[in-house]
């Protein structure tokens, strides 16, 4: 049985893939690094009925700020309303809307997989193919790590599932806009309207 990580990161969607379609959108939100900011953002989403698909938070290189990478489900509300409401939070400095098409995204997966002598070789082969890592080795289990795009993580999960997944944790994606090489659209940055 797959042990699903934080409930806001639904792992095993029907078909074993994340329903990553038009309805998901990535917001990269620069916030003041203060107590309670995450609670404010989370409460805003819950109060207004916006769905968070995944959420990752970390400090930035400037210690005054943190960056939230929020994947929102636009079926719950139009993107414009979500960003406008987010902007009303005093601690929100800047929001960059990243269309998944124009983003570079990475996510980290940790998985504990059943690996007896007979299957271990095949698992290690997959580890090699995907460029994953073995973090920990037990008698009948391996703990694997893979940092890649969310789709690659989906594929990898799908393939190692057959050996018996014992536990899975995903970090939620982090994303940045693709660098502009003339053609791409890049992210749309919205500072506070001024």
């Amino acid at each position: 049985m797959t042990n699903i990580g934080p409930s806001i990161v639904p792992m095993s969607l029907p078909g074993g893939r994340s329903s990553r379609g038009v309805s998901l959108h990535v917001l990269s939100v620069l916030v003041e690094n203060r107590a309670g900011v995450l609670a404010r953002v989370a409460q805003l989403f819950s109060r207004r009925g916006y769905n968070i698909y995944s959420l990752a938070v970390a400090p930035t290189d400037d210690e005054r700020f943190s960056r939230l990478t929020v994947v929102v489900d636009l079926e719950s509300a139009p993107l414009e309303q979500i960003t406008k409401q987010l902007h009303k939070l005093i601690n929100v400095i800047k929001i960059t809307e990243i269309d998944p098409v124009d983003a570079v995204e990475q996510e980290l997966l940790l998985a504990v997989v059943a690996a007896d002598v007979s299957s271990r070789g095949q698992i290690l082969e997959l580890v090699g193919i995907f460029g994953a890592k073995v973090l920990d080795v037990g008698l009948e289990r391996l703990t694997l790590a893979l940092a890649d795009t969310p789709e690659k993580l989906d594929d990898f999960t799908e393939l190692i599932k057959v050996f018996g997944l014992i536990e899975v944790q995903r970090s939620g994606r982090v994303a940045l806009a693709k660098l502009n090489r003339g053609g791409g659209r890049g992210g749309i940055s919205r500072g506070k309207a001024s």
């Binding site: 003041e32 005093i90 601690n91 506070k192 309207a193 001024s194």
Partner: peptide, 8 residues
């Protein structure tokens, strides 16, 4: 000085 509060 509130960088996140600049009403238009």
């Amino acid at each position: 000085d509130l960088p996140g509060f600049k009403p238009t």
